[in-house]
Simulated assay, not measured.
Amino acid sequence: MRHTGRGTRARAGMVVMAAVLLGVAGCGDGGTESRDTGNATGGPGRASRAPGKAADDPGRALDAAALGRALPTPRNLPPGWRVGVTPPKTEDLPPGRRCPKGTVRGDCSPHGSYAVARYKAPGDSGTVYWELFAYPDRETVETAFAHRKVKPEKATDVAMPRVGDDSTAYRRPAERFAPPSLDVQLRVGNAVAHVMYVDPDKNPDSARTLLALSRAQADRLLKAQRNPAPETAAD
């Protein structure tokens, strides 16, 4: 009976955590579909107007410092989230490693900067990875994101409301050296985010949690491109 009680409390905690995350994501500046009444498993709902910049806005290319400020921090995550084994990292790639404008090839990088972070969810309920990529212009980011939207082999589509200017979601099964994951790839202006929930089965509400985290990330990327100055660090 004690074991059942602990399990009930853990499931209740996950529901509360998702509710808090959804509340945080809904407090942004409208950069994501925070008013969408659909759910993370594809339930019915009417989406709000497409978020992000206008199609004719070329957007702003972010450097590694600006991307780093767009990463999540303990301040903008609910209580209980902890930094993973590896600390957040950012890098600006040298020109020699970047692809020519509008191209995506295996021997060069289409993005100019990137940032990564990893946080452990409360109560041994999985780990979430964030990868952020900044591209020099709209043509390059749209070309790159078209490739990123192609789901990996064995992955299955997951129905989620659109996040940012464009997004896709899928689930990857466990493999020999990798646990299962829920993944969201999203684009906001000239930046792309990959938000991945590893071991989602440890959290019965992992899909809603991932959706909330992805919406919050889209808000931070939108704010960063509107004004990448240091004082706009995520709060």
Rank of each mutant, 00 (worst) to 15 (best):
T143M: 13
F177H: 06
A207K: 08
E175Q: 11
D137S: 10
S48F: 01
D201A: 15
R172V: 15
G112N: 05
M196H: 07
G42Y: 06
R176I: 08
K120T: 10
A224M: 10
V116E: 11
D57A: 07
P110C: 12
Y129F: 14
N190H: 02
F133G: 00
E153A: 10
A155T: 12
T103K: 12
A18T: 11
G7D: 12
N76K: 01
A144T: 00
S167F: 13
A229S: 13
R11H: 12
T209D: 03
A121S: 12
A144N: 00
R2D: 08
V198H: 03
A55R: 12
K223N: 07
R98G: 08
A178R: 14
G189K: 08
P122R: 04
A218H: 03
A146N: 07
H111Y: 05
A146K: 10
A12H: 10
V184Q: 06
R75P: 00
N227H: 04
N227Y: 05
V16T: 11
S167H: 13
D157P: 07
L211H: 02
D107N: 13
K154R: 09
A134L: 09
L211C: 02
K101A: 14
R215D: 04
Y114E: 15
R172N: 12
A65F: 02
V20L: 14
K223A: 11
V158F: 09
Y135N: 11
D29G: 08
R97P: 01
Q185S: 11
A146E: 13
R6I: 14
R220E: 06
T232W: 01
A218C: 05
A155S: 15
G189E: 13
V141K: 05
Y197D: 09
V141H: 05
L221Y: 02
T143V: 15
R148E: 14
V116G: 00
D183R: 05
A12D: 10
T8A: 14
C27L: 12
R162V: 14
T86W: 09
G13A: 13
V116D: 10
D219G: 06
G112F: 02
P95D: 15
R171D: 15
A55H: 10
G30I: 08
